Amino acid sequence: MRNLFVSAAFVAMSLFGLSAQAAEPIEAGKQYTELSSPVPVAKPGKIEVVELFWYGCPHCYQFEPTLNPWVEKLPEDVYFHRIPAMFGGVWDVHGQLFITLDTMGVEHRVHTAVFEAIHKEGKKLATPEEMAEFLAGQGVDKDAFLKTYNSFGVKGQVALAKKLGMAYQISGVPTMVVNGKYRFDVGSAGGPQQALDVADQLIAKERAAK
């Protein structure tokens, strides 16, 4: 019984320590970087949170189970969206895949399946034809996908995503940006949950500044 009590006390102290750590104020230059030139947001009037990611990134894949429940609970004044990081090669191919799915309005339905195809099933998804074949099994029309993938509109969005990645001055993923002003990643924040704690504090900072 004594051992159970000691264990319970240890767990309680551990949880308290985690709470205290999460509540610790953040500082520019430590947990996050303040951009010298703010980047315009997609929806003025809302507090924007961007995640820059790559479907082929294992850290992005591991971040998903922590990130998604947080996104679902964001308040109405916060706008979250993903932007694919474009560093050339297959990064650009997968980025165009994401933008195509988003343009078609099916990204929310197949986003997790794409991640799992790459990281659990060993699929490369390195060509539009391979993507179309896989997505057909997810209920996405092959011809419609290929037509959209090669469309002028999608190519324009790819160019915009590249410009935004450069404006945010990212060097890796997953990286988050709050309101076009503050950039941080899972590593600099201290872990997946800590990254969301940083995001919460920066959201509160922007809300208080309105």
Rank of each mutant, 00 (worst) to 15 (best):
V186F: 06
P58G: 11
E121G: 00
A161Y: 14
A23I: 06
N150C: 00
E206R: 09
H59Y: 12
K142H: 05
T127D: 02
E64W: 04
G165S: 15
L146C: 08
N150A: 12
K162W: 13
K120T: 03
H81F: 14
L196H: 04
D197N: 09
V177H: 02
D102C: 07
L35R: 03
T103A: 11
G122T: 14
P84A: 12
K147I: 05
M86A: 14
C57M: 10
F152Y: 11
K46D: 00
A208N: 00
F98H: 14
D102G: 10
E72F: 00
C60A: 09
E121N: 10
S171M: 15
G172C: 07
Y55I: 01
A126I: 03
V178Y: 01
F152S: 04
F98S: 15
V6Q: 10
E51H: 03
G17W: 02
A167P: 09
V6E: 07
I170H: 14
E206S: 08
H94S: 05
P38S: 00
S151E: 11
K123Y: 01
D77A: 06
A42N: 07
P128L: 00
E64M: 10
A85M: 15
A8W: 14
Y149Q: 03
Y168A: 01
G139R: 10
E72K: 09
P84E: 13
L164S: 06
E34L: 05
L15E: 06
Q169I: 06
L101D: 11
E107C: 12
K30E: 14
G172K: 15
F5G: 00
A42I: 00
V110S: 15
I203A: 03
P192S: 07
Y61T: 02
E24R: 14
D141W: 08
M86D: 15
S171D: 15
K43Q: 06
Q169F: 05
E129A: 11
I99S: 04
N3G: 07
K210V: 12
G153I: 07
P69F: 04
P58K: 03
A159S: 13
G191D: 13
Y182W: 15
K205H: 06
G187E: 15
D77P: 04
L125N: 03
M104D: 11
M13G: 00
L4F: 06
V49D: 01
T112H: 13
Y32N: 08
A85H: 13
F134M: 05
I26E: 09
G45V: 06
E51V: 07
C60Y: 04
K210E: 11
S36N: 06
H108E: 05
V106D: 05
T103P: 01
A195P: 13
V41K: 03
L125R: 05
A85V: 11
V140S: 08
G137M: 03
A144C: 11
V154T: 12
G29V: 08
S37N: 05
F152G: 01
W54P: 02
G137C: 02
V114R: 07
A144T: 13
G17N: 01
L52W: 08
I99R: 12
E206W: 04
I118Y: 00
H94W: 08
G45E: 11
V93C: 04
G191N: 15
A23M: 04
A42D: 03
